[in-house]
Every structure is written in C-alpha cells, then in structure tokens.
C-alpha cells in the first residue's frame, strides 16, 4: 500500500502555488502553442483528419452526375438509418417499370446525426461521408433537405477529402469489375465451346 502525501507548509501556500500555475499559463500562452490551442475560427481553420465526417453524400463516377451515380436505389441505407433521415424514390421508365436508380434521394440533414451507418451498410460504395461542416441555413425545410442534385459529388471530390479510403474503394471496385469481366469472358468462352460442340 502506497501513500500519497501532500505536504502543506504554511496556510495560504496552496493558493500561492495555484497562482504560480496561473502565472505560468499567462506567460506560456504567449509562446507555447500547446497552451494556446484556440483557433481563431473564420480566419484560421484546423485541417480535418481524413476520417472526419459530417453528413453523407452520393458518389458518382465520370462527369455526369445523372448517369454516373453509383446508387442503385436499393433502400438499404433508408432502412438502416437510425434517424430515418433518408428518403428514396426509385426512378421509373415511361412504361412505369421501376429502374435501378433513384428518382429522388433526399437526406434531411436536420435529422441526420452523421453516424455513417448508411455508408457502412451500402453494398455499392455509393454513399460516403462528407466532411464539409458549414450547413447553416435560414430555413428549416428546403435548405436542410439535401436533394439528389446537392448530394451527388464526383469521385474526384471523394478522392480529395479522403484519399486513403477512396483509393481503397477504387481498387476494390476495379478488382470486382475485372473479376466480373473475367467471369463474363469465361462464360462467353464456355458458351462458344458449347456452341461449337453443339455445332
């Protein structure tokens, strides 16, 4: 058993010791950046770490936000969202057939709590976490409901804010694609041989 001992010399010495600490901080704040950690916000901004997250956004490949969207409107994020902040309506073609892309994809960022479960459960790496944090608006509904147009951001943007994660996902997607390609080619080859033998 060890005893922690505090020696008290004279009454009042405790306060004097405390005043020494505050004096050290008073002077230290002028030259020691570890003591003065305040960031004068609008002029100075801290670099955000790569993992930093605010609200989700939709990634699209290529240049066209309409066709390049990775989202297939599978509604998984909508069901999993703890705050029920996501709302998806599938697109449909002229004959009324449901298409595998969202007609409306809305995230109510006044309800979104930035938990990133949507991006975690997304099987298509279509929804990712943004790190832009200035979302203040003067109006509660339209301004804080991010629609598909405002959610869709290019893969290049994703690469800029989260290079590591983006590169990892890109290589995985590329691997998936080449595997699919391989499978397709094998299948074609098999079909060809099958056709040949049938002939």
């Amino acid at each position: 058993m060890k005893l922690l001992k505090h020696i008290r010399f004279l009454p009042g010495s405790g306060i004097l010791k405390g005043m020494l600490v505050t004096a050290r901080n008073l002077i230290g704040s002028y030259y020691d950046p570890r003591r003065l950690r305040t960031v004068r916000y609008p002029e100075e901004r801290l670099p955000l770490p790569e993992n930093s997250r605010s609200v989700p956004f939709l990634v699209y490949d290529g240049d066209d936000a309409e066709t390049g969207l990775r989202c297939v409107a599978c509604h998984i994020c909508e069901t999993e969202c703890p705050a029920r902040a996501i709302h998806i309506v599938n697109a449909c073609d002229k004959r009324g057939k449901v298409l595998k892309r969202p007609h409306r994809f809305e995230i109510d960022i006044s309800a979104c709590m930035g938990c990133q479960i949507c991006s975690e459960v997304c099987p298509f790496d279509a929804i990712m976490m943004d790190n832009a944090y200035n979302h203040a608006a003067f109006e509660r509904f339209d301004s804080l409901t991010l629609t598909r147009e405002r959610l869709a951001k290019p893969n290049a943007y994703f690469h800029r804010i989260k290079p590591t994660e983006a590169a990892e996902i890109d290589s995985r997607l590329a691997a998936d694609r080449s595997r699919m390609e391989e499978r397709r080619r094998k299948k074609e080859a098999a079909n060809a041989t099958h056709n040949e033998s049938a002939r």
């Binding site: 009042g12 010495s13 405790g14 306060i15 010791k17 405390g18 505050t22």
Partner: peptide
C-alpha cells in the same frame, strides 16, 4: 506521455488550494 505534466499542473492548482479544501 504529455498527460502527467498536465496532471501535475492540475494538482498544483487544486489539491492544496485552501479555499478548495
């Protein structure tokens, strides 16, 4: 590694302060 220095400072500021005691 930097935390003990902070704790020392806090202890110096608080533990023996007569008013706090």
């Amino acid at each position: 590694a930097g935390y003990p220095a902070f704790l020392d400072e806090m202890e110096q500021l608080l533990v023996e302060n007569e008013i706090l005691v």
